[in-house]
């Protein structure tokens, strides 16, 4: 392939520009890094902070307990995320039903999203984990399950609104096309509206799941020991805050794959739109 001198010149110019930008980026990153390191380690109290937050021995001792707590977070996250997605989708579908017959369900679903988006999660947790067992009913599930239910019903309120936004973003002409082929309302939802809606709102749904990942730890308020609670216990034993840092690092590591998936899905959705 023979390129014209003008094009060769353009390519050479762009290549030079790229090299220059990379060099500038590297230099500025280095400067910021050095400044931060000097500022932090040069602070008058740095030695004490390092001893109480970044003690490797304490970290090693605390790791097994914190990791065991994190395992609880992971299990809760999986069940609560699935539960909240299912319940949220159901409520969103109920809210989109038309016709006077469905007024009560629609009103209930709307009331649900208003209530549980407004109510602080901690209060829902206390009511379910401390109040409900007080009923002394037969076959009462464990506090852990009750806490999980509190998370599910709270997050379902947010997720329902995300799903509803997705459902309403599908153009009415798509519904008309599906109904004109003889598909019923349910078939139209199932085969035409929901597949498009869910694809569109996948990024915000995953984003809420990342938020849920941190909130599942709140069940420890009712007794079960999650990663943060485990860190708090070892902190109380050693008078050293390093276990919190350990738990924090583990949380970030745990969130990374989910955040990466969210970014990838968002990027793919954006590319499909264009």
């Amino acid at each position: 392939m023979n390129l014209s001198p003008a094009q060769l010149d353009r390519i050479a110019y762009r290549r030079r520009q790229t090299v220059i930008s990379v060099l500038i980026a590297a230099a500025s990153t280095l400067v910021v890094g050095v400044l931060l390191a000097v500022g932090l380690t040069g602070a008058p109290g740095w030695d004490r902070v390092r001893a109480s937050f970044f003690d490797l021995d304490v970290a090693r001792d605390a790791l097994p307990d914190v990791a065991a707590g994190l395992w609880l977070n992971v299990r809760l996250l999986v069940f609560c995320a699935l539960g909240a997605l299912a319940l949220g989708l159901l409520i969103a579908l109920l809210r989109t039903l038309r016709g006077p017959v469905f007024f009560p369900v629609r009103a209930l679903a709307t009331g649900y999203t208003y209530t549980f988006r407004g109510l602080p999660l901690i209060i829902v947790l206390y009511v379910l984990t401390l109040g409900v067992p007080g009923l002394r009913l037969q076959g009462m599930p464990s506090v852990l399950v009750l806490g999980g239910i509190a998370l599910v019903i709270t997050y379902a309120g947010y997720l329902a609104e995300v799903f509803r936004a997705g459902i309403e973003s599908v153009h009415p002409s798509q519904l008309a096309a599906a109904r004109s082929l003889g598909l019923t309302y349910r078939q139209t939802m199932r085969h035409v509206v929901l597949p498009q809606a869910i694809r569109r709102v996948a990024p915000p749904l995953l984003n809420d799941t990342v938020a849920l990942q941190k909130d599942v730890g709140l069940v420890s308020l009712a007794g079960p020991i999650d990663a943060v609670r485990a860190a708090q216990i070892s902190t109380a034993e050693t008078f050293n805050y390093t276990p919190y840092i350990v738990a924090g690092v583990l949380f970030v590591l745990l969130a990374m794959p989910l955040i990466a998936v969210t970014d990838w899905v968002t990027l793919r959705a954006a590319r499909r739109q264009s």
Binding site: S173, A177, A178, S180, G182, L183, H191, Q196
Partner: peptide, 28 residues
């Protein structure tokens, strides 16, 4: 009754084939 719209209204998440066989399979 069949109807065809000005703006085609094909289902964008389905292939051409899936668009065409949706009603025969699900409705008929």
């Amino acid at each position: 009754i069949g109807i065809v719209f000005q703006s085609y209204n094909l289902f964008p998440h389905m292939t051409v084939l899936e668009n065409v066989i949706l009603a025969p399979v699900r409705v008929h």
